[in-house]
Design a protein around this nucleic acid. Sequence first.
DNA 1: GGCAGGTGCTAACATTTCTTGGCATGTGCC
DNA 2: GGCACATGCCAAGAAATGTTAGCACCTGCC
Lengths: 115, 115
Amino acid sequence: MVGTSPSGDDLVHVLGTLANPHRMRILATLAGGRSYVSQLARTLGIGRALLQVHLRKLESAGLVTAQPELSPDGKAMKFYEVNPFAFHLTPRSISDAARTLSAAEAPQGREDHSR
Amino acid sequence: MVGTSPSGDDLVHVLGTLANPHRMRILATLAGGRSYVSQLARTLGIGRALLQVHLRKLESAGLVTAQPELSPDGKAMKFYEVNPFAFHLTPRSISDAARTLSAAEAPQGREDHSR
DNA sequence: GGCAGGTGCTAACATTTCTTGGCATGTGCC
DNA sequence: GGCACATGCCAAGAAATGTTAGCACCTGCC
């Protein structure tokens, strides 16, 4: 699984997701062991609403996985854990990714911006 | 130089810079050889104003370098070239970086967000 | 002078992302 | 019932980013 080059769009998504202090801390915390939302919120000292948004982004980027579970005493809890990943960023890998960027994000210029 | 772990803040900066289709394409183009602003704009099909903003971000993240030069016929031109770089992103490296995030960006919570 | 081709800057608008607060739902327990 | 703790969602404001248009300046050349 390692060594697979993500498409340009995916890479933009992943990088954009990682490029945020909160999400880095969340990832770092989860790397130390799985945890559930409220617990994480307490550990990180941030509100649940905010945390959930970030967790959702991390999940949509495929960096973490959610696992709904029922605690012994019947509470519905949502555990999260880190998905293993490895991205190598070099001018070369970025160039490769750039070639697979979707046209939608491209200016696909027919326009004359010359003057 | 390879293998040096960037500080958390630097990493956020670099990742945020790379996480953009325009900047990826700019980097990809420059990886194929140095070029100057107007030329790049034509190649990419985007306006100069926009290009300059992105080039500035790439430069501030240390991914490219600007080289002002005087063309044979006296025109002042600004060439850009890619700086070699290599970042390895893994849960581990992200965790390490997260520990060096500046407090300013930290919620450093004393607050009670519990309810 | 006037045109072509470089550079730079900035104000203003458009869009996206981030953050907060409030409210709704569910379970177990005293 | 009422409290503690868990989840979810959404509207709305704040802040950061992205984009465009326009103007200013310089040099060589016909």
